[in-house]
Simulated scan of single mutants.
Amino acid sequence: MSANLRLRAVPPPALRNSATWLERLFENEADASRHREEVLDKRYPDQERIYAGAPAQGAGDRPQSQVVLGGRPLFRPDRHKPPFLVLTAAQARRVAEFLTTADFDALWAFARDELLPRYGGPAAERETWSAFAAAHQELRAFYAQTAESGDAVVKVPAA
């Protein structure tokens, strides 16, 4: 499993449906300064669990984690590497709306019993809650800025 998840905002006209182009986008650190980026630490797979408990916003909606941390996979030529995950600008806007209105304490209550044993149990709840709440706030800010700019989002698990 990868150590973190990198999310990068990309203007839709610049986005290419090419794994090779996306690899260059994430490898080129000069591009990092031109694009808004967020990096979630090794807890990001568990962060997904928090959003999985969110109520559906409409009939047939999938768990919110699919849009917050997921996306349409774009597979790399090297199938041993994880795929890129792509959200359109419209999807990124919906994620921003969800994160703006989400009640983190309610989401935490849903995931708490599953997550606490992995992070030191009830004695470590304050620290664990704080770490996940901080990641939630970072995601909220990233997606809000991304939606305001009308950008798409590309994600990749990275070591």
Rank of each mutant, 00 (worst) to 15 (best):
S18C: 15
S18I: 14
S18A: 11
A19G: 15
T20W: 10
W21L: 07
E23G: 07
L25F: 06
N28V: 10
E29G: 06
D31I: 06
D31S: 09
S33T: 13
S33R: 14
S33I: 12
R34K: 08
R34M: 12
R34F: 08
R36V: 07
R36H: 03
R36S: 11
E37C: 14
V39L: 12
L40T: 06
D41C: 01
D41P: 07
K42D: 12
R43P: 00
R43H: 06
P45W: 00
D46T: 06
D46A: 13
D46Q: 14
Q47H: 07
R49G: 00
G53F: 14
G53Q: 10
A54E: 12
P55D: 08
A59S: 15
G60W: 12
G60Y: 13
D61L: 09
Q64H: 10
Q64D: 10
S65A: 09
V67F: 09
V68P: 05
L69P: 01
L69T: 02
G70V: 10
G70R: 11
G71K: 03
G71P: 09
R72Q: 08
R72I: 03
L74V: 13
L74C: 05
R76F: 05
R76S: 03
P82E: 04
P82K: 02
P82L: 02
P83K: 05
F84H: 00
F84K: 01
L85D: 01
V86H: 03
V86A: 09
L87D: 10
A89C: 03
A90F: 07
A90W: 08
A92R: 04
R93P: 07
R93I: 01
R94I: 01
A96N: 00
F98R: 11
F98K: 03
F98V: 08
L99Q: 02
L99T: 03
L99F: 00
T100L: 01
D103V: 00
F104S: 04
L107H: 04
F110W: 06
L115T: 08
P117R: 01
Y119H: 09
Y119E: 04
G120V: 01
A123Y: 00
A123H: 08
R126Y: 00
E127Y: 10
W129D: 01
W129F: 13
A131D: 14
F132N: 03
A133W: 14
A133C: 05
A134Y: 02
A135P: 02
A135T: 06
Q137D: 10
L139R: 09
L139I: 02
A141W: 00
F142S: 09
Y143M: 12
A144R: 15
Q145K: 14
T146E: 11
A147H: 04
A147P: 07
A147C: 09
